[in-house]
Design a protein around this nucleic acid. Sequence first.
DNA 1: TTCCGCATGTAATGGGTTACATGATTAG
DNA 2: CTAATCATGTAACCCATTACATGCGGAA
Lengths: 168, 168
Amino acid sequence: MAAIGLIAQNPGSSGYDLLKVFDLSLANVWPATQSQLYGELNRLADDGLIEVTATGKRGRKEYSITDTGRVALREWLLDGAVEPTRSALMLKVFLLTEVDDEYAQEFLAGMTERARDGEAALRDLHSSIDWAPDDVMGELVLDWGLRMYRTQQEWAEHARRTLKQRTK
Amino acid sequence: MAAIGLIAQNPGSSGYDLLKVFDLSLANVWPATQSQLYGELNRLADDGLIEVTATGKRGRKEYSITDTGRVALREWLLDGAVEPTRSALMLKVFLLTEVDDEYAQEFLAGMTERARDGEAALRDLHSSIDWAPDDVMGELVLDWGLRMYRTQQEWAEHARRTLKQRTK
DNA sequence: TTCCGCATGTAATGGGTTACATGATTAG
DNA sequence: CTAATCATGTAACCCATTACATGCGGAA
């Protein structure tokens, strides 16, 4: 559904174009590979959710969303399905009983550091984009990332303190 | 790797036993299905990371971790690989430009509500468990969930306010 | 004419899900 | 004896990733 949404936002895009959008603005949210994207575009076209509205040089195919596609997209956007979360990080924390305390501390320190780096990277990204006044959503998504990284830092520090105390 | 970790924590468990552990204490972190688990146990045994140390009634097989398994587990636990995040929720937010503002508001309101519910459910879970003083990790993981839900609520409210202002 | 960027596709592999399938033991 | 629980497994399918493969067009 990611692809169809992007086509709705950018009618007349090709798979190649979309790939750049994925890498530039959705990399942190919904990574997609080239292989996967082209396959999905063909499937969506077969299902009639998108259609080729023009062809260009080098076999370029420009897609637009169809009416049925728009209906499907809106339905998907608004259905409040809860996707199961899966955090390898927390799984590791849960299993951290299997390593010595010093390693556990190191692990948590690493988490803090990576969260700090992630936050910094997002800040850089934010300032490198010249935001159009109408695309609020991009900024909101980026802000979500910042908040998540900050929460992660806070938690990791909390966990470190807790662990230090309990093992004493 | 989840299975091998749980076996390390609970030597002598069967697939059936592990399934209960998954459902009871890892459901919010690393869901696993029955099918998948049994398959993985056989694979891990083939690879020599775990071994069947006893058999019981009804074909029950009790597993324990091997020395090679323990090495592999520790290595996996401590390697600081960053798994790419993928948030269907944020993807939807990014595409929320495709629905009318009232629906966007509704979407964000739903997020707040679901995050509140999630938080409440975790609180209930927390109070329903009688925590052994030595399993700090379980509590830390639960606390992570609480913090994430709280951040989600805060963000959703922030997003709502931002949107309301910009569309006026 | 040579290289870079545009542009699309296929194949192999791995992991996950749902559904199906089977049977043994125990408690009431 | 019957139902619930214990206990494991297989098959079909979907989605994602990596790697491989191909070819056109434009710029220098």
